[in-house]
């Protein structure tokens, strides 16, 4: 099979090194694609795959990058976010990687993207049915912190034996009066597998349920891929007397006045001054451009 060299690295006196479209060789892409198909067929189940070393460190999004590289085509428009922001350094680095190796169009606008790779957030703008959301996953096993052994957790998933997880959540309630898990909050997918949604704040969990977009999860170091097809029931684990609740922010975004969105706390000085602003930078910028102004914001025409 002929690889199409589309990028190269000069080696001075050494011969050039060329790479395939989207970096991965075709055999590796096929292997990842097969894993993605099985992941979709068994929602929430972690499919083992032979993750490759990528030219970025494990733990920095290699799983997401491999999934994105395997699905990406020349017609795609790619958005990459980290902490909800397009301009965080790792998002910039990953976007640059695909611009270089796949020459793919990129965007920061959620609505324009066909593939969105994310770390730690789901965009505020509702996703649509033509979009693929690719999550970077550090630890795919929701039971890992209760039972570190893969040999054990695999059994628990096979038997759908999730009592351990409920016990842990309930112990939190007994000790703290709250479920002390605030991110990577476990979900049950399509009534069968308990799944780690990656370290998104639990604020984002409800967005996974009945989502029109396809959600793919890639864990490179741990060599697992899993998926949630569109319009799939995703339920955050909870108890009748302690129903699942998301964080609530007291004030709207200080820049765009949005409410009902996830906010970052920004420390302004060393005297306790702080403000809360949208973690989703595209959402915030769009609202500001539409004329929404928060208490510390500037009207759009003044800023321009």
């Amino acid at each position: 099979m002929s690889a199409q060299p589309i990028s190269s690295m000069p080696r001075s006196s050494m011969p050039d090194i060329t790479y395939n479209f989207a970096y991965l060789d075709e055999q590796t892409k096929r292997m990842i694609r097969r894993a993605i198909l099985k992941a979709i067929a068994v929602p929430g189940y972690q499919v083992p795959f032979a993750a490759r070393e990528m030219p970025m460190p494990y733990g920095w999004g290699t799983g997401g990058v491999q999934v994105t590289a395997a699905v990406l085509g020349p017609q795609d428009v790619l958005k990459v976010i980290d902490q909800g922001a397009d301009d965080t350094t790792n998002a910039v680095a990953i976007r640059g990687f695909f611009e270089k190796t796949a020459r793919v169009a990129t965007t920061t606008a959620t609505a324009e993207a066909t593939v969105i790779q994310t770390r730690h957030r789901i965009p505020e703008t509702a996703l649509n049915e033509n979009q693929i959301l690719v999550y970077q996953v550090p630890i795919p096993e929701p039971l890992r912190f209760l039972e570190p052994r893969e040999t054990e957790t695999r059994q628990l998933h096979a038997l759908a034996e999730y009592g351990l997880m409920h016990v842990k959540l309930y112990e939190d309630i007994a000790r703290h009066g709250h479920i002390a898990t605030t991110y990577a909050y476990p979900v049950e997918v399509a009534g069968r597998y308990v799944m780690d949604p990656s370290p998104i704040p639990k604020f984002d969990n409800p967005k996974m349920d009945d989502c029109p977009a396809l959600q793919l999860f890639g864990a490179g170091r741990e060599k697992r891929i899993y998926a949630i097809p569109p319009h799939t029931r995703v339920r955050s684990l909870d108890f009748e007397d302690h129903p699942f609740k998301v964080q609530h922010f007291a004030k709207p975004c200080a820049l765009c006045a949005a409410t009902g969105v996830y906010l970052d706390e920004v420390i302004l000085d060393d005297k306790g001054g702080r403000m809360f602003v949208c973690s989703d930078t595209d959402y915030c910028n769009t609202r500001q451009a539409q004329g929404h102004v928060g208490e510390l914001g500037v009207p759009a025409e003044d800023a321009a």
């Binding site: 350094t89 730690h120 604020f203 964080q247």
Partner: peptide, 16 residues
């Protein structure tokens, strides 16, 4: 990779 990834931004989770 995994040890050093701790220096990446985690402020969304930290906020939670």
């Amino acid at each position: 990779g995994f040890v050093e990834h701790l220096k990446l931004p985690h402020y969304v989770d930290f906020q939670a």
